[in-house]
Amino acid sequence: MMNIVVILKQTMDLEEQVTIEGLKIDNENVELILNPYDEYAVEEAVKLKEEHGGGVTAITFGKPEAESALRTALAMGADKAILVEQERELDESSIAKILAAAIRDNEFDIILGGNMSVDNGASQVGPRVAEELDIPHISTLTKLDIDGENVRAERDSEGDVEIVESMLPILVTAQQGLNEPRYPSLPNIMKAKKKPLEKVDIEDLGLEEVVSKVRSTVVDLYQPPKKKKGRIFAGDLRQQVQKLVRLLHEEEKVV
């Protein structure tokens, strides 16, 4: 029987255009999804449960609408969910502390998460939570085998594959290729609406003071300048290529 925890985040679908309002990205008028890397984590968690028995608890931190990301996890096979509700945007340090506090209240053998969120892209929360809980971690996982207390994993290290061995309890973060996330079945989506979803706030976790510390502030947010229209060559193909090579070599000096 394995106590499995998944930490996840709701993000906007990056297929969408980003709109900036002041120092914030407009999250109102965009499609919100379960962070793709976290989807691998949920799938792996459900597979572990199917193989070893036990239960999966999905935990997130965020605004009330983040509930739908938890419902997705529940529809995929998680058993219960915890939403630490908070309107403020907090930094990675605070988020890790909040998640660690929420996890500490539960029994756990393994914690899974995505290796990064596609919006903030910092890759911090997983290892930070492991540090807060003083357990080992393995990041960017592409394969996971658990036998008793023993963990054997493959991780992606910039294209190389590292085979890593460790022990439970552990935190792992998922890389693309770990698995093929399942689509929830329609009956499971309806059932997920009845699964327990607990809402807690930061005060419940006794963290109000800890997270009120300002470690950084966003002072500017902008979109990269639009590129000038590129030059599309025309005419004889060889001459096009000659022109291009000359430009890259002599003008741009990138070769």
Partner: peptide, 25 residues
């Protein structure tokens, strides 16, 4: 003007999904 700027929700609501599933089922 919101439509022109793409300022409208791009996700289906939980309720809409639930309704569609119920009708389909």
């Amino acid at each position: 003007s919101d439509y022109d700027k793409g300022r409208y929700p791009k996700h289906a609501t939980e309720k809409a999904i639930e309704t569609a599933i119920t009708k389909f089922s």
